[in-house]
Amino acid sequence: MAVPREHLIDMYETMVKIRRFEERIRELYFADKLPAFDIAAGLIPGEMHLAAGQEPVAVGMRPHLKDGDAITATHRPHHLAIAQGVDLNKMAAEIFGRDTGLGRGKGGHMHLFSTEPSFGCSGIIGEGMPVAVGAAMAFKARGTANVALSFFGEGAANQGAFHEAINLAALWSLPVVFVCEDNAYAISVPKTASTAVTDNSDRAAAYGIPGVLVPDNDPVSVYEVMGAAIERARGGGGPSLVEIRTDRLWGHFEGDADAYRTDDFKEDMNERDPLKTFAQRLLADGVLSEADITEIADRMHTEVEAAIEFAMNSPYPAPEATLDHVFSERTVTL
């Protein structure tokens, strides 16, 4: 599949935006937590799972999305939300716990919910997979040509929800694409110690649907495979399972000592950093010039900075707003 030039550039720009966003969140996360790390301290308290290195998973599907498509994501959601076009200001504000955030400070970075585009994520492994099936049921019932994409890590492929969701989607021939982001580690446990098969894509056979492996964390490979899976789903061909070998460049969460991965592993991983390799390829292929690369970096950094600034200048919610939004009408009192 020849990738149109504008898609290559769009994917690269989005990768830069994602990486910059994650870098800035990381800087601001640590800025006020050191020297003695205190997870509860600072502008961004709590756990923080960043997706540097996993950008290809997100940007490869991006050109294939249409209005109304839905995504369910994981505890490591930023790359997918950015690639889908979730409002960056509101997303940043939610991460900073502000009243202008996607959830008005109720959710935080593991619970980002957007209506347009339809995005949701969760702190529970595998939890979003059945939800994507239901979104696809609604698309089918309402006759829209939309697709639900369910992203999950390779650790989630051993959850019951994985098998239940794929079985249902296959049984009812629903427009779902299940996407396994295989970064090889479920926190500290390598896939080799958790999973009885080498390729989770093989598990598609158990449900009679296509299973495709993208072995190289390459945005173009992801683009091609996701394009075919999304087209199949949109055209009524039913679900498929895509497994993408990717890299989590940083720890499971910020502050993770990451001692379970060897220096050699980390060195190799950083060597193949997809942002660097994709830029080199676009330069070599004449898609982008050095000047373009610089211009894109400036533009994406400016956009990210504006979102961070929006977030940091936004007010916190009033403490008593805790009681709002349990239900659509306020019923909870102290």
Binding site: A70, T72, S118, G120, E127, M129, P130, V131, A132, V133, G134, A135, A136, M137, A138, F139, A141, R142, A148, G160, A161, E164, A165, N167, L168, L171
Partner: peptide
């Protein structure tokens, strides 16, 4: 449905979010 409560209750949630 199949005997698959996580699957179909979760699917109910997704359908509810999307207009059903």
């Amino acid at each position: 449905t199949p005997i698959s409560e996580t699957g179909f209750i979760g699917a109910g949630i997704g359908a509810a979010i999307h207009g059903m």
